[in-house]
């Protein structure tokens, strides 16, 4: 490396890291605060060095039973992902391998149902849920999240399925495999990486979904998004506890996000950018 190249690289290193630290600062600060005592957390002059304590994590669990909300989040996000896959796999399979003149239109129509703002259907869904006893149940929220993510899941799977060589499936068909066997024995193993990243994205979206969580659940089925929202009352001014609860709520999904960052672009732009 010539001195000029090195100087250039050093300059970009400084710039890049300055931007990265600035943008992630609120999060880093939050994680740091979660290990502080409540007094240190609201000190007039913020402390950068302090005695770390796990006190806030313990208090959050004891006072508000954090694990119950976490369990709701896990059930709802994993359940909705499985349900969405169950409907999406046959659909994407059909459109990818037996395309007709209407396939493109169907795909765009599916996406357009996602453009419908959730609030537009809030009233009917709320009333249907109230009358069927689904209000404040995990099942109810799980179903709504699954349907909400369905268009995106279908689209993602469709772009991944398109890359599986047709000949392999056709060979299976010649051997007499029906659609179900064809999907189960051939397509799923061949497109496993695509299915995994689709599932990751669907899980992330369901985990972070806030609109339906806030409107359709209360004490019983509330997931973490709704639990954290309860800190918007003056309770939120207990900074160390707010930070501890938030850190626990985002940690698992942050890891999933980092793992899937590459496929995320492809998935969310429906293969338009890869």
């Amino acid at each position: 490396m010539t001195p000029i190249e090195l100087r250039r690289k050093t300059l970009f290193t400084l710039l890049g890291w300055a931007v990265a630290l600035l943008l992630s600062f609120p999060l880093l600060w939050m994680v740091l605060t979660s290990f502080k005592s409540e007094a240190a957390a609201i000190a007039r002059v913020p402390h950068l060095f302090f005695h770390p304590t796990l006190e806030s994590f313990r208090v959050v669990q004891e006072q508000s039973n954090y694990l119950r909300f976490a369990w709701n989040s896990i059930v709802v996000s994993l359940g909705s992902t499985l349900l969405a896959l169950l409907f999406a796999i046959p659909s994407a399979y059909t459109m990818a391998f037996s395309p007709t003149r209407r396939t493109r239109g169907t795909l765009l129509w599916m996406l357009s149902t996602k453009m419908m703002p959730s609030v537009g259907v809030l009233v009917p869904i709320y009333l249907i849920f109230r009358d069927t006893g689904l209000l404040d149940t995990r099942t109810g929220l799980l179903v709504v999240d699954a349907v909400g993510n369905l268009p995106i899941v279908i689209w993602m799977l469709y772009t991944f399925f398109k890359e599986v060589p047709r000949e392999v499936l056709e060979a299976g068909r010649m051997d007499g495999a029906g659609p179900v066997r064809e999907i189960y024995n051939l397509l799923l193993p061949l497109s496993l990486p695509g299915i995994v990243s689709t599932s990751l994205l669907a899980t992330i979206l369901a985990w972070n979904e806030a609109f339906w969580s806030l409107t359709l659940t209360a004490a019983k089925a509330a997931p973490l998004t709704a639990f954290i929202a309860s800190f918007s009352s003056p309770q939120g001014l207990f900074y160390a506890k707010l930070s501890a609860a938030s850190t626990m709520a985002i940690a698992p999904i942050l890891v999933l996000g980092w793992v899937s960052q590459r496929q995320l672009v492809r998935g969310l732009t429906f293969g338009a950018v890869k």
Binding site: V19, P26, L27, T225, I228, F231, G236, I250, W258
Partner: peptide, 24 residues
């Protein structure tokens, strides 16, 4: 690593990021 740091806010649930900004 810098890229991972820049990406992080996207994976944070909206209620957490809103309260984090509002209060802290």
């Amino acid at each position: 690593i810098a890229r991972v740091l820049v990406l992080s806010p996207f994976f944070v649930m909206p209620t957490v990021s809103a309260l984090l900004w509002k209060n802290m």
